[in-house]
């Protein structure tokens, strides 16, 4: 198995070089954008007061770091995202399992789910704040509302689209519903479950930042809100970039787990 022909080794090498080329180009594009931005700022073609510049952003990060508040904001946001991710995933998993288990339940609740899912949840923001208070609870609830319904729908849809023949086979062996769920539904849907959870995570991210924009006293969303109230564009853009990095970070953890534990 390990001794390939020269032709095959050449092919593998070519594929590898191609992949490296793609990554290098991606990095170059980002660096190019930042350099262009900086040059435009240096030549006063864009107004750094309104559009900031890479240099100012780096300075802002350093000053946040020196004031010792950079990580506390990042950690708060991260904590809220992960907490709501865990709660939303658990709820979605339990509910979608119940809907799969009981056809009557799914008939009754499927239309509700579709309607609630298409409702713009931000509209509920003020109500949530009144009910749950202007604190972290509101942020978590917001994040849950945004993520949980779509995740229930995604999980349920993948459960019911399972290959019918697998189920017929198990039934012919006298399998119970529990057998079918454990041995077929879950196993044949690992990649669907993972992509549903990925979407869940992005939704949690959106929900948490939205919640922070509305109520919080800490976190990256709060930082953006605060910065805009004092018209500090540098700080706004810095916070946005950190948010982007954070989501890349979370996403790559996910991809890492997926690649190393679920690939056959």
């Amino acid at each position: 198995m390990s001794t390939f022909s020269k032709e095959h080794n050449d092919y593998l090498k070519k594929e590898k070089i191609y992949k490296i080329k793609v990554h290098l180009t991606q990095i170059l594009v980002i660096i190019g954008l930042f350099i262009t931005w900086q040059i435009l700022a240096n030549k006063n073609i864009i107004n750094t007061f309104l559009y900031s510049s890479p240099k100012l952003i780096i300075e802002t990060i350093i000053s946040l770091f020196k004031q010792n508040i950079l990580f506390s904001h990042i950690l708060i946001t991260l904590y809220e995202v992960l907490l709501s991710f865990i709660i939303a995933s658990s709820i979605a998993f339990i509910v979608s399992t119940m809907l799969w288990w009981n056809k009557f339940l799914s008939k009754v609740f499927a239309p509700f789910l579709t309607v609630i899912n298409s409702l713009p949840k931000v509209a509920l923001g003020p109500l949530i704040i009144i009910w749950a208070g202007a604190n972290m609870n509101s942020i978590i609830i917001m994040s849950l509302l945004i993520s949980v319904f779509i995740t229930i729908i995604n999980l349920y849809e993948s459960f019911i689209s399972t290959n019918k023949n697998y189920i017929i086979l198990l039934k012919s062996l006298g399998a119970t519903k529990k057998d079918i769920f454990q041995k077929v539904i879950i196993k044949s849907n690992t990649s669907n479950i993972i992509s549903a959870l990925k979407i869940n995570l992005s939704m949690n991210f959106i929900g948490v930042v939205m919640g922070e924009l509305l109520v919080s006293k800490k976190g990256l969303g709060y930082l953006i809100m605060y910065a805009s109230s004092i018209f500090n564009i540098n700080l706004i853009i810095t916070a946005i970039i950190i948010l982007g990095l954070l989501s890349v970070f979370l996403y790559s953890i996910f991809s890492y787990i997926e690649k190393n534990y679920f690939k056959k």
Partner: peptide, 12 residues
Amino acid sequence: GYMLQSDSLFPW
């Protein structure tokens, strides 16, 4: 023992 047209072997 019941056998169908599709082999229905579980790929995992």
